[in-house]
Nucleic acid binder design. Structure first.
Length: 610
RNA sequence: GCCGAUGUAGCUCAGUGGUAGAGCACUCGAUUCGUAAUCGAGCGGUCACGAGUUCAAAUCUCGUCAUCGGCUCCA
């Protein structure tokens, strides 16, 4: 490479190509919107029997839903793309036309596209706007668009995938075929977008988890049932111990409850009525019991168990808040098509806790929980998340409890959030069936959103289980429950952590923290001695016994993403020192063994870097 | 659950109807080595599973299971 070439490469690196989201760029909004129309037009040119439905922009592209008896194939996609290029090169004008509702109805009837009639019915404003591409194709659309199809760059768009999607997002409706595409201002942006997508794929926890040997799935065990290897188990228990310590400081008590219970327990809680189909099947002695829905089920939730512990004694207001915590493993029969990696599984462990509080204590205790959750995220260096207040959908009948209790609970959360000055958004219809909740939403490498932490306010289960405490005046009062889980589930949290760190765990979490590399087998005994000494000090260290050359040992250590490697040879053995090499900073020079141990334990203790 | 794609050695992947392949990993041997791959040999497969078509199936057809991308769902 010539000097000038390397300079320009650096220049490119210094000024990365920006990839705006659609919602932050009016120009891309027009481009992507028009691109979806161009795609629809191309599809109807090639496959005239196809009906078009809706085709909005997405944050990085667009899609369009089609109704066609035959499924689209990869080959079709190529043909459609080619046709789109033709339409772009024809520079067809994009013309806005305003018509009356009656006129729109007439035109739709003429072209026999019943889906459009339904869409028209949904449009609340009058008059109706249509957009024409040239004089042969039009669609109902509010716009905006670019001025002609020639404003799209023929090399700055691509068609990405085909998927099924229900009409109007309702599984009871017919399924349409959705084609996803992406479109940009320039070919360079498209290229960069594809490059970043490939990079993101490299962080995928399913890939990294396999490479690092953290967890496994086996067809012999079943789908959605991960098993944790020794390395993965270190991650899990380190996270568990971390949270247990935090909880102990905050007045939580650990409890342990069984994995199965009588189905009646969940009938009382209301879970059975709401989620029967999503639970593993009932275990019963005989057909008759099965028919009568009597028997045992694998627990999908821990709360009813904790409620039983609460109920086992007469509680005084002096005992409240009572905080019962458990890493409880629950089983849910998730739909087969929904399973994926660690983010959606059928058996998982919640860092669950149930807080029983007096109504007066609710807001303070809620804020304490939010504090705990935020401090946990901070320790894990998780900074990209959104807080979502999930409230009930007033028109739905899936919720239990009185309107009054719901309003109280929702207001309590809003009030607490405002008191804390925390920003959040509201999501009507996302509440649990027994109460509203504050959820913490994270993104995976592919920008899919997942709920991790959650805090839920519940006036209903105390009612259904008739919970009581004795108040100051001797009267029996009903406590309020808070359900909360900072991690949500260990499985999902670890999935997200793997992607967040790209497998480069901070020292305190790394399954293998230090690897000792002997320059030759001659120094293996010394390496083993140092490793043993480190283990004694609580450092997860191991000597590499493979007998390979140093270069290979380093390569293997780097591939395994070991945060600290310590090389030992004649010099080190002589001086009782280590030549340190960290994954983050490379060679650090030599250091006495005792000093290294002291620094390592300090960094691990403070969850900091070495 | 629905639509579509995929499934070959522990891993990553070639192999379009005619005797199952490569690299890495693993085992053994040689080498004793100073900051990202030493050399050589060996081991390893019911081509996901089950039917079918065919003289012949990893390859074609159907079914099942699993994985992946979406949709729906998510206490």
């Amino acid at each position: 490479m010539s000097p000038s070439a390397s300079q320009s490469a650096e220049a490119v690196e210094q000024q990365p190509i920006r990839l705006p989201r659609t919602s932050e760029s009016d120009k891309l909004k027009r481009i992507r919107h028009t691109a979806s129309h161009v795609m629809a037009m191309a599809v109807q040119r090639l496959f005239p029997e196809t009906q078009v439905t809706i085709g909005p922009w997405t944050e990085y592209g667009f899609y369009y839903d089609f109704d066609r008896p035959e499924p689209f194939t990869e080959k079709d996609l190529k043909a459609i793309k080619k046709e789109m290029v033709k339409i772009i090169k024809q520079k067809l004008p994009v013309i806005r036309e305003v018509v009356t509702r009656e006129e729109a109805e007439k035109r739709i009837t003429e072209i026999k596209e019943p889906y459009k009639l339904e869409i028209l019915g949904d449009i609340k404003q009058d008059p109706i706007t249509l957009y024409h591409l040239g004089d042969r194709w039009w669609d109902l659309c509010a716009g905006p668009h670019v001025e002609t199809t020639g404003d799209l760059h023929p090399k700055a768009f691509d068609l990405e995938s085909i998927a099924g999607a229900y009409w109007r997002g309702d599984a009871n409706n017919p399924q349409l075929q959705r084609i996803y595409g992406t479109a940009w201002e320039t070919p360079e942006q498209l290229k960069e977008y594809k490059r970043r997508k490939e990079e993101a794929l490299k962080r995928d926890h399913r890939k990294v988890g396999k490479e690092l040997g953290l967890f496994v799935f086996s067809d012999a065990v079943g789908p959605g049932l991960p098993m944790w290897t020794p390395k993965g188990t270190i991650l899990r228990s380190t996270l568990e111990n971390f949270l247990k310590d935090e909880q102990q400081k905050r007045g939580y008590f650990g409890v342990v409850t069984p994995h199965i219970a009588r189905v009646d327990l969940f009938k009382t809680s209301g879970h059975w009525q709401n989620y029967k189909e999503d639970m593993f099947p009932l275990m019963a002695d005989d057909e008759e019991a099965l028919h009568a829905e009597q028997g045992f089920i694998l627990k999908p939730m821990n709360c009813p168990f904790h409620v039983q512990i609460y109920k086992s004694e007469l509680r005084s207001y002096r005992d409240l808040p009572l905080r019962l915590a458990e890493f409880g493993t629950v089983y849910r029969y998730e739909q087969s098509g929904e399973l994926g990696g660690l983010t959606r599984v059928r058996g998982f462990t919640q860092d669950d806790s149930h807080l029983f509080v007096t109504p007066d204590q609710l807001e303070t205790e809620f804020l304490n929980v939010v504090d705990l959750i935020l401090s946990v995220f901070e320790s894990l260096r998780l900074r990209q998340f959104k807080a979502r207040l999930s409230t009930r959908d007033r028109s739905s009948d899936k919720y239990i409890g009185s309107d009054e209790a719901w309003d109280k609970a929702e207001d309590a959360i809003r009030h607490a959030m405002n008191a804390k000055g925390m920003s959040y958004f509201e999501a009507p219809g996302e509440a649990a069936f027994y109460g509203p909740k504050l959820d913490f939403i994270f993104q995976d490498a592919l920008e899919r959103e997942w709920q991790l932490g959650t805090v839920q306010v519940d006036y209903n289960l105390p009612e259904r289980f008739e919970l009581e405490y004795v108040a100051e005046d001797g009267s029996r009062q009903r406590p309020v429950m808070i359900h909360r889980a900072p991690f949500g589930s260990l499985e999902r949290l670890i999935g997200i952590l793997i992607e967040e760190y790209s497998g480069d765990f901070p020292l305190w979490l790394a399954p293998e923290q230090v690897r000792l590399l002997p320059v030759s087998d001659e120094f293996l005994p010394f390496a083993k001695d140092v490793a043993a000494k480190m283990l004694q000090s609580g450092i997860r260290a191991a000597a590499d016994t493979s007998g390979e050359r140093l270069g290979k040992l380093i390569r293997n250590g780097e591939k395994a993403k070991i945060p600290v490697m310590a090389i030992v040879g004649a010099k080190e053995q002589e001086a009782n020192s280590l030549s340190i090499r960290t994954r983050a900073s490379g060679e650090l020079g030599s250091m006495p063994v005792d000093e290294a141990i002291e620094k390592l334990t300090g960094a691990i203790e403070s969850r900091g870097d070495f």
